[in-house]
Amino acid sequence: MARIPGRNPWLAWPAGIVCAAVVATLAWLALPMVPVVVAWVGESLRTATSPPVAAPVEPSRAPLLEIAESDDAIDCRRLYPDDLWVELAWRPEALLSQDFSAPSTSVASLTDALAPQVRVTCRWRFDGGGGISSTLARVASDSAAVVEAALQGEGFSCETAGAVLRCRRAQGGAVEEHAVSGDLWLSSVETGRVPEDYGARLAEGLWGAG
């Protein structure tokens, strides 16, 4: 084999051995990082191939509910969902009055038992007769059981959807509806032609559950 001029074999061999030793030392030092690198590569591949996962969304509370549970003032416009408000306000000769009168319920003993603190009462009168009286009031937080027992004894049908108790009775040309959840009581008496599912829509605007 031809030799390359100027290369000294006595220097080349020790230099090669030193280089090999350095490489072996570096490889030995890198051994603890091998599992970390493998895990990182695997995670990168999984992230690149997996479909994005949406972050969990916390259920939002109805803005009206926050106002109703606070001491802030609330009026009839705020009480009604937009679609229900438009349907009522645009009726010919519709007249609205707002006050703090007690709920218009045929079960007078219920009002006495609950001792409500009225937040707002909205009374609608329509051309040709008929109308609606709806009241939002604050009551004791354990009032749902009292309401259910009292109204079922008067012929109301009651059901619970989520945390909202709803009771309804149609009698003598009038529909009376009540909804209770926590410390809020929503009651309505309807006569004549009223929007479809009036009570359910009003409750949905407040609690987000019809």
Rank of each mutant, 00 (worst) to 15 (best):
A62I: 04
R46D: 01
L31S: 08
L65E: 04
V57M: 00
V38C: 07
V41E: 08
P14F: 06
T47G: 13
V37F: 15
L64P: 01
W28M: 09
V34W: 06
P63I: 00
G16M: 10
V37S: 15
L64G: 00
W13P: 02
P63W: 03
V57N: 08
P35G: 02
A21E: 12
I17E: 04
L29K: 05
V23H: 05
V22R: 02
V37C: 11
A24E: 01
L65N: 01
R46Q: 09
A54G: 10
E58D: 10
L45K: 08
S60G: 09
A20H: 01
V18S: 04
P52Q: 09
L29H: 05
S60P: 06
A48V: 03
A21W: 09
L65S: 02
W40R: 12
R61V: 14
A21H: 06
V37P: 05
G42L: 06
S60H: 12
A39P: 00
L31M: 15
I17M: 12
A62N: 02
E58M: 07
V53S: 08
V34M: 14
A15P: 04
A30G: 06
A54F: 08
L29N: 07
L45Y: 08
L29R: 12
A30F: 07
G42M: 03
V23A: 15
A39G: 02
L11K: 03
P52L: 11
V23Q: 09
V57P: 05
C19E: 04
V38I: 14
V18C: 04
A55R: 00
E58V: 11
T49Q: 14
A27N: 07
S60R: 14
R61A: 14
P56S: 05
C19F: 12
S44L: 04
A54E: 15
A21D: 02
P32K: 04
E66W: 06
V53I: 09
T25E: 04
P51Q: 14
P63R: 00
M33D: 12
P52D: 09
L45H: 08
A39K: 02
P63F: 07
L11P: 00
P32G: 10
V22I: 15
P35V: 10
L29V: 12
V22G: 07
P59D: 00
M33C: 06
L11A: 12
P51W: 12
W40A: 09
A21S: 15
S50V: 10
M33N: 09
T49I: 13
V37I: 15
G42D: 13
G16Q: 01
V57S: 07
V18Q: 02
P52A: 11
V53W: 08
P56R: 05
A48Y: 10
A62K: 00
